[in-house]
Every structure is written in C-alpha cells, then in structure tokens.
C-alpha cells in the first residue's frame, strides 16, 4: 500500500536535512535538543555553509552533537565554547563558526566567556538551549532554574534568598554593545518552531554579513529531569517558563558600526 501512496504523492516535502547525520541520537524521548539540532542543520543547508563551518560543542547533553551535525567540530571545555569559537573565528575569519551551549555551560561557568565574546562583537553565532537544568549530570539546579523548581540540588525548590533568580540571558546580552542579534524562541508548538527557524536564519545572516555577535536562546524541555512526560514538559514551557522568559527579539542591529 505504501508504494501506491508514494505514487500518488511523489513530491517529498519534508526529509532529513543534509547536514544532520542519519543516526539515532542519545537524547531522551521528547528532548528539544533534537529540534534545535534539526533547525541548525536546516539553516546550515539553507545558507550552504556546511563546507566552511566549524562548530564548537559544549560540555553537557549536547557534547555529542558532533556525532549528529556533519561539520568540522571542536569540543570546548565546559563554558569555554565562546572563547574557543573566538580562537577559531580569528584563525579563519571567512569560516562560519557557531557554538551550541546549554544553560549550565553558558549561563553558569561560561558567563564571563559569553559576555566578553558578545562585548567584542565576536562574529560568531551562539545557539543557547535553556531547559532550566543541568541535563547530562542528572538534573541539578541551573542559573535558569525557575523559582520553586525542585531539582537534584534544590530539593525544596529554588528559593531566591538562597539561590537567587533565574538569569535572563537574551535580555542580558541585548544590553551589550557588541551584540548584533539576541532573541529568545521556543519549540513547543509548530508556530514557535517556525519562528525559531526565522531567528536562527537571522542569526546566521548577522554572521555572514559580519554585523557581529548573534545569539538565539531556545526555551527547551528536559522531560527526564523535570520528571514529566514530554507533552506535559512542553505545557510547562508554554506556561510557567515562557511567563518568566518572554519570547521575542531583544536586539537586532540593522548593520555593523564599522562597515
């Protein structure tokens, strides 16, 4: 029956992006890393930069992304991806360089590196996956963990007197002169996924047109460490998390100062 259907519907309208390797990922069921990876790969294909891209992988669940995205990769020490990417970009300014980092990687140990890469207007693109937890290490409290959220290291719920507030990266980096583009997106509804693709395209374009530093923050799920079914995890993103972390474009330079 399948072949008959295939005859009546010959035109493939959705298939695996060329830059996304056809392998099963280690990510948990319903983990939004998979969607962010696919959007990244689609955008690499769209801009046809696969052959001149160097990716910088984080330390976290996505450390293994070099098994999934078919480009040259360097693995950065935890939190140092923006610095490694700076070294790569300065070595080959005409290559497309991106980092892909989680909230522990970027907003905790790597805060200094991300702020100064942005402040230098480093011409790199950062995909920042915010799932309010340290996934790989088993669900500890992250800088973006919500108030009241129970984690392995905030078993009674995050409490601001003790643990401070969830950090808003997209807004933080938008205040930095060197930042050309800073946006926050989500991938919990088809419409959000479409907007997320647009944001990543904008970010790629900023780098390719040498306008400067670009970052896209993805609100993502971590069903395993949230102890939720994937669909419920998405509801949490749509509700509580989006409430505190509003989606939107927080900075978009029209063109670089130095052009």
């Amino acid at each position: 029956m399948k072949d008959k259907r295939r005859e009546t519907f010959p035109r493939a309208v959705f298939s695996r992006p060329r830059s996304l390797l056809d392998v099963r990922s280690h990510y948990c069921p319903g983990c939004h890393h998979g969607i962010a990876h696919r959007i990244l790969a689609e955008t690499i294909d769209r801009f046809d930069v696969r052959g001149k891209t160097v990716g910088v992988a984080p330390v976290g669940c996505a450390v293994l992304m070099y098994d999934y995205i078919d480009v040259d990769f360097a693995e950065a020490p935890h939190g140092r991806a923006p610095a490694v990417a700076t070294g790569v970009k300065r070595a080959h300014p005409d290559r497309f360089v991106f980092t892909y980092q989680g909230d522990g990687d970027l907003a905790a140990i790597g805060t200094s590196e991300i702020i100064h890469a942005a402040n230098r207007g480093e011409n790199i693109t950062v995909l920042f996956i915010n799932n309010t937890t340290y996934g790989m290490t088993g669900g500890q409290m992250a800088p973006t963990t919500m108030l009241g959220q129970k984690t392995a290291t905030s078993p009674y719920g995050r409490e601001f007197r003790n643990d401070g507030y969830p950090i808003k990266v997209a807004e933080l980096l938008a205040t930095i002169e060197g930042t050309a583009y800073s946006a926050r997106v989500a991938t919990s509804t088809p419409a959000q996924i479409r907007k997320a693709k647009e944001a990543v395209r904008k970010a790629f374009d900023m780098q390719i047109r040498e306008v400067g530093f670009s970052l896209v923050e993805f609100l993502s799920t971590c069903p395993t460490n949230w102890g939720m079914k994937p669909l419920d995890a998405q509801k949490r993103v749509l509700g509580e998390i989006s409430g505190y972390f509003p989606l939107g474009v927080y900075k978009e330079r029209k063109q670089a100062d130095f052009v």
Binding site: R6, P10, A12, S15, Y27, H32, G34, I35, P190, I193
Partner: peptide
C-alpha cells in the same frame, strides 16, 4: 516539524 528525532518523512 514537531519530531525531535526526525522520524517522519512527508510527501
């Protein structure tokens, strides 16, 4: 578009 593991192809 919604599948995190790119399991679905469409024609």
């Amino acid at each position: 578009e919604s599948c995190p593991d790119v399991c679905i192809r469409v024609w």
